[in-house]
Design a protein around this nucleic acid. Structure first.
Lengths: 342, 342
DNA sequence: TTGTACGCGTTATCAA
DNA sequence: TTGATAACGCGTACAA
C-alpha cells in the first residue's frame, strides 16, 4: 500500500504538502495540487485513517450498544443512528449485549480503548456504575433508558403518559378488567409503563389487582406464557396491555391456541409499533414509537458534544401516538367468519 | 487519560516493559508485573488501541456491508457476524447501503482506509469492479451474493435447488398454474431462484409463462403490487412462489384486501423464514435459510484468512429446508370460519 | 512549501 | 533472565 511519502516523492513535494492538499487547507497552489492528485491516482493512494486518528485524537467512529439487533425493536434505531452518523462522517460499531451488564461493560471498555468519539447506549437493563464515564472525553447518549445519576444526554419518549394513553383507550372502550403484561422490573421503561397503567386505572376509579399483572421479559415466549397464566387465573381480564409488541404477539398466539378470540373475547394493545403490527392478518393496536428518529436524534446530540457546541446535558422526549387497529376491538364491527382470510 | 508512559513512571519501569507485561510476553518478572498492574489500576490506564493498531497493522475491526438492517432478512446475519466476531476479538462496523452500488463503494473505501481487517459483503446488488480489491491485504467474504470473477470466499445457500424444492412442493399439492414473484434481475440470488422455479416447472412438464412471473424488489410493497397485478392478469394462478418472505406477506395482504382466501383460493410460499412467518396468524410456508449461521461462518472464513491459515478460496453452501405451514395449503383441512382468530 | 516534532504503543537491539 | 533505549508505524501541525 502506498503511503503519503510515496505520493510526495512522485509529486516532487513534501509529505506535509500532500497532507495539506488532501485536507483542503489553503496555501497549496493549484499546480502542485494537480500534481499531487495525479500521484495519488497513480499510486492508488488511500490515507491511513488509523494514523490520522492517532494524531487528531478523533476516530470518527461511534459505538452503538444495544440488547439484540434481532429484536424487532432495534433495527430502526440502528438505522437511524447509522444514517445520521454517515451524514456527519462517522462509522458505527454495532454491539449486542443481550442485556447482560457484564457484556455491556466489556463492550464499553473496548470501545473507549478504541477511542470512539461517542457512545450510544440503548440496552435494556440498568448498569449502575456508568457514572465513572462522565470524566472520559467521550460523550454518552442514552436512548430510552434511564441515565444514571450524573446527567448524560438522553433521547426517549414519555413512557408513563404513553402507557396511560393506551390503557385509557381500553377503558374508554368499556373495559374494567384490564391486565398488564409488563417488562422486567429492572427496566426503567418497563417500570414507567407500569406506572402509566396504574395511573390510568386510578384515574378511572378501577381497583388495581396484582393478579392482573404478569411480568414478561419483553420476548415473544414471555408474552405467550403470561397470557396462558392470565387465562388460567382469576379474574379473567377482558383486555390486556402489553409492554411491547412482541409480547403482545405472543399473547395473541396463546389466545389462538386456546381458541380465545381477539378482539371479540379479549382486546389486546401493544407497545412499539413494530412493522409486523401493521400486517393485515395481525393488525395490532399499539403505541407508536419513533425509533428511527430516536436513533437519528441521539447522533445529533452526540455530535453537538463532540464538536463542543454544547456543554449542558439535554433530554429529548419524542412524541408517541396510539395506532388503533383491530386487536383492541375499537373498529370491530364484523360478524364471525366475515374476515376473508384466517 | 493516562498513557503507558505514566504507568511506566509510576511503576518505576520503562514503557516497553509495561507493554511486554500487558501483552503477556515473557521476560517480565512477577514482581515488576505486580507493580505494573497496580500502577495500571491506580491510573485507570486503558491502552490506546489506535496507537497499537498503527504499529501492529491490525485493527481487530471488520466491516459488515448490507442493504438495510431494517429488512428482516439481515438482523440475524448481523447477529451471527457480531457474535462470532466477538468470540475472535473483533468489532463490527455496520454499513447500510440500500443496495446502492455507489454507497457501497464509498463504504468499502472508507473501511479500507480505516484499515479494517476484513470485510463481509451482503448487499443485494452486484457491483462489478470489486476485483481490484483482490490485491488489498483485506479479505472479503460474500454472503449469498455472487462473488466477482476473482475468487473471494463465499457463504450462501443453493438458491436454485431451494427454489426448486419450494415449487416442487406446490406441484405435488396439485398446482399447475404457479406464479412467481421474483426479485430484481440484477440480484444473483433472485435470478437463481427464478432458475429453480423454471427448472421445477420444466421437470414437471408444466409450460412456462411470462404472464405468471412478476418482478418485485424484495419489499412488502412490491409483493403487494405484484399480487394485484397477478389477480388482474390471465391466467389467474392457483399458487404463488415469492422470492422472499416480505414480498409473500405483501402478496397475502393484497389477497386479504381483495377477499382472496389463502390458502383456499391461492397457495403461497415464501423464502427466508423470517420470524414473522411463524406467527399463528401468519403461518407462512417458506424456505428456511440459516441466516445466523451464514453470518457466523462468514466470520470464520474471514478469520482463517486474517491469520493466514488458508490461502485457497472457499465456498460454503449451507443447507436450507422447506418449512410447511398454513399458506401452502398442505395441512389445510378446515372449514371456513373454523379459525379461532381473525 | 518544508522540516520536524508529535500522537502512543510495540518491537528490535542492546546492556546489565 | 530482565529491563532500558530507540526506532518505528503514518499522517498532521507548527515553526520556519
Amino acid at each position: 500500500m502506498a503511503k503519503i511519502k510515496d505520493v510526495a516523492k512522485l509529486a516532487g513535494v513534501s509529505p506535509a504538502c500532500v497532507s495539506l492538499a488532501l485536507n483542503g487547507k489553503p496555501y497549496v497552489s493549484a499546480k502542485t495540487k494537480k500534481r499531487i492528485y495525479n500521484a495519488i491516482e497513480q499510486l492508488n493512494y488511500r490515507p491511513n485513517i488509523i494514523a490520522r486518528s492517532l494524531r487528531n485524537k478523533k476516530t470518527h467512529t461511534i459505538g452503538l450498544v444495544l440488547s439484540d439487533i434481532t429484536n424487532p425493536f432495534f433495527p430502526e434505531i440502528a438505522r437511524g443512528v447509522e444514517t445520521k452518523a454517515r451524514e456527519y462522517g462517522f462509522n458505527v460499531i454495532l454491539c449486542n449485549t443481550d442485556a447482560d451488564p457484564l457484556l455491556e461493560k466489556n463492550y464499553i471498555e473496548v470501545l473507549l480503548a478504541k477511542q470512539v468519539d461517542g457512545l450510544i447506549l440503548t440496552s435494556v437493563r440498568i448498569m449502575d456504575d456508568l457514572d465513572k464515564y462522565t470524566k472520559e472525553n467521550c460523550p454518552l447518549v442514552f436512548i430510552n433508558r434511564k441515565p444514571p445519576l450524573s446527567d448524560f444526554d438522553f433521547v426517549g419518549i414519555d413512557n408513563v403518559a404513553s402507557a396511560k394513553m393506551a390503557v385509557e383507550h381500553l377503558i374508554k372502550l368499556g373495559h374494567r378488567k384490564i391486565a398488564l403484561i409488563r417488562g422486567e422490573p429492572a427496566s426503567w421503561a418497563s417500570f414507567s409503563r407500569y406506572e402509566g397503567y396504574r395511573m390510568a386505572l386510578k384515574e378511572a376509579g378501577i381497583p388495581y389487582s396484582d393478579n392482573l399483572v404478569k411480568i414478561g421479559y419483553l420476548r415473544y415466549e414471555s408474552g405467550y406464557r403470561a397470557m396462558e397464566s392470565l387465562l388460567k387465573g382469576s379474574p379473567i381480564p377482558t383486555a390486556i396491555f402489553c409492554a411491547n409488541d412482541i409480547m403482545a404477539l405472543g399473547a395473541i398466539d396463546a389466545c389462538v391456541d386456546r381458541k380465545v378470540k381477539v378482539p371479540q373475547d379479549l382486546a389486546i394493545v401493544g407497545f412499539d409499533d413494530i412493522w409486523v403490527a401493521s400486517l393485515k392478518n395481525v393488525q395490532l393496536t399499539t403505541v407508536h414509537q419513533p425509533r428511527y428518529e430516536m436513533g437519528a436524534k441521539a447522533v445529533e446530540l452526540m455530535v453537538e458534544r463532540i464538536i463542543g457546541k454544547r456543554k449542558k446535558t439535554k433530554r429529548v422526549i419524542l412524541p408517541t401516538k396510539l395506532v388503533i387497529r383491530r386487536t383492541c376491538g375499537a373498529n370491530f364491527k364484523i360478524s364471525r367468519g366475515k374476515w376473508p382470510n384466517l
